[in-house]
């Protein structure tokens, strides 16, 4: 930035606290949504990888079709499908319930609130999409564990499930960790597409603030910084895990 840019920036004034609050709200929503998607897609991804590696043809085929379907179509189209398409198939009563507000409250303090349909469909869409990627990364980790490990475990009297749980999976996850963390970063960035279906995450809030303030540079500048902070935190985590792994395998 040269000095003239800085001076226009300051002359324009920075964002009012109200709009910074919007961006912060959006950021928290981005983090919350990312966390849910990461957890769900990792659990489902393990089941998915297990299905693909199970050696049972129908199961492996079904998982193959799933990958083809979710990896070969744009995420935005998938989100539109979950938000605009699926409701057309649901009975009217179900949809009305999903769209309504349901809260669990003690006295006047609300403890839990049923999330908006925008949130639900964005999470479902992101999980379905991310599972295909996360599952393949876990699978590559599984394949990276030498077959002799499983055979040795079986020879020691482990059942196939036990061999997977105690011998193969721990090693597989260690191999899969670097690509998985890259995938988690993608998930965090992909949540921004949720803005198209009304998920009030960081990009949605940034656009809202921009439309009201016309301070395009400031709004997107702050939004970019917030994304960078989140991704950087993930990267620090990745480095930490890798160092720990390196120590362990020595």
């Amino acid at each position: 930035m040269d000095s003239s840019l800085i001076s226009t920036f300051l002359a324009d004034g920075f964002l009012a606290p109200k709009y910074l609050g919007w961006l912060l709200d959006g950021w928290l929503m981005t983090l919350w949504a990312s966390l849910l998607v990461v957890l769900a897609s990792t659990l489902l991804g393990m089941a998915f990888a297990a299905a693909r590696e199970s050696g049972r043809a129908p199961l492996a085929h079904a998982a193959g079709v799933y990958v083809a379907l979710f990896r070969n179509t744009p995420l935005l189209v998938q989100l539109f499908f979950w938000y605009f398409g699926v409701p057309a198939l649901l009975p009217e009563g179900v949809l009305a319930w999903l769209n309504g507000t349901h809260a669990l409250a003690v006295g006047s303090t609300e403890l839990l609130r049923w999330p908006s349909f925008e949130f639900l469909s964005a999470i479902v869409g992101l999980v379905a999409y991310s599972t295909a990627y996360v599952g393949e990364d876990i699978r590559s980790g599984l394949r990276g564990v030498p077959a002799s490990q499983r055979i040795a475990a079986t020879a020691l009297g482990f059942t196939p499930l036990q061999a997977l749980r105690y011998v193969v999976l721990p090693q597989a996850l260690r191999i899969a960790m670097p690509p998985l963390l890259g995938q988690y970063m993608n998930i965090l960035k992909n949540t921004s597409l949720g803005m198209a279906i009304g998920l009030m995450e960081l990009s949605y809030r940034a656009r809202q603030a921009e439309a009201e303030t016309w301070k395009t540079f400031q709004v997107y500048g702050v939004a970019t910084l917030l994304y960078i902070v989140a991704i950087a935190a993930l990267e620090v985590l990745a480095h930490g895990l890798q160092r720990r792994n390196a120590r362990r395998s020595r």
Partner: peptide, 18 residues
Amino acid sequence: LVAYDDTPFAFTALRNGN
């Protein structure tokens, strides 16, 4: 308020009951 990219999208959401 739920903001959509354009009016036809908003109308679909209305039709769906969102």
